[in-house]
Amino acid sequence: MPTAAPGVNVSLAHASDLLFTWTVLVYAVAMFGYSVEFAFARIARSRGDQAGRPEQIGRVAVGLTVVGWLLHLGSVVTRGAAAGRVPWGNMYEFSTMVALVAVTVYLVLLLRQPVRFLGAFVMTPVVLYLGLAGTVLYAPAAPLQPILNSYWIKIHVVAAITASGAFMVSGVITLLYLTRTWLDRRASMGPGTAAAVEYHGFARWLPSAERLDRLAYKVIGFAFPVWTFAIIAGAIWAKYAWSRYWGWDPKETWSFITWVAYAAYLHARATAGWRGRRAAVLSLVGFGCLMVDYYVVNTVISGLHSYAGVN
């Protein structure tokens, strides 16, 4: 263990790490609760039983998600306070912020629509992601390098993180959409009718393909302009820091590729013959590019962007 960097409040840094651990635990329990509801509520209902017990568990899971979210927020805030700066200076901090946004997007959706079925599917990657962040990517709190010390980093990175968290949720919904359409197709090819689809297989646990598609579009419709703004803010920052707004540095290029992939998805939704599954695949390609942008570019391909914080 290296000694703490100067200017770092050690007890706050400890508190942040402790809150982080609790966040992961609480989220994991919530994830388990959602899974129980998901698996049993509809089975119970399809048998004609009341789904009271599983639904209660689902509501508890929402409560736990909110508690976990508060702990998570606490962990991020104390981290920033410990290092005396904004809490998104390296890949560990980046990843935990992205997970925080993903949970926030899920909770905001939940306020407006009955989307508790998403709980298990959002919390699973969040927990895995936080697990990865807390182990492989972990870096102790430290001040920023001068190049990162600009208010544009705040704007640029907050926007990038917000968009990424939302893209993560849309990616989960899109996977569910593809699963649902695949099951629908299989069912429609096999014996039985459309009604049979509703009661057989995994499909009956999920909302209709149509609803999932709209939900994914809605979330991407939020994330895409934010991502666009993030790229622009990054370009402005680059203009101040490196004397040019665009230089095809690998990080910039992969952000651009991600942007173009999602633009292609939006176009596909308006192009005859491309709506539906093909468009959905394009949005997953976009998400793949985003992951390359964060993890492959930071660790394998190195450019001017110097905030990975892992060696």
Binding site: W248, P250, F256, V260, A263, A264, A268, A270, A272, I301
Partner: peptide, 27 residues
């Protein structure tokens, strides 16, 4: 047409990839 726009957008994304995998003179 929309289809061409879609095709060209996909091509543009694809064409940028080698620029990040191979070293570039400009960088």
């Amino acid at each position: 047409s929309m289809r061409t726009a879609l095709l060209l957008l996909s091509l543009l994304a694809l064409a940028a990839v080698p620029g990040t995998l191979l070293p570039q003179r400009g960088l």
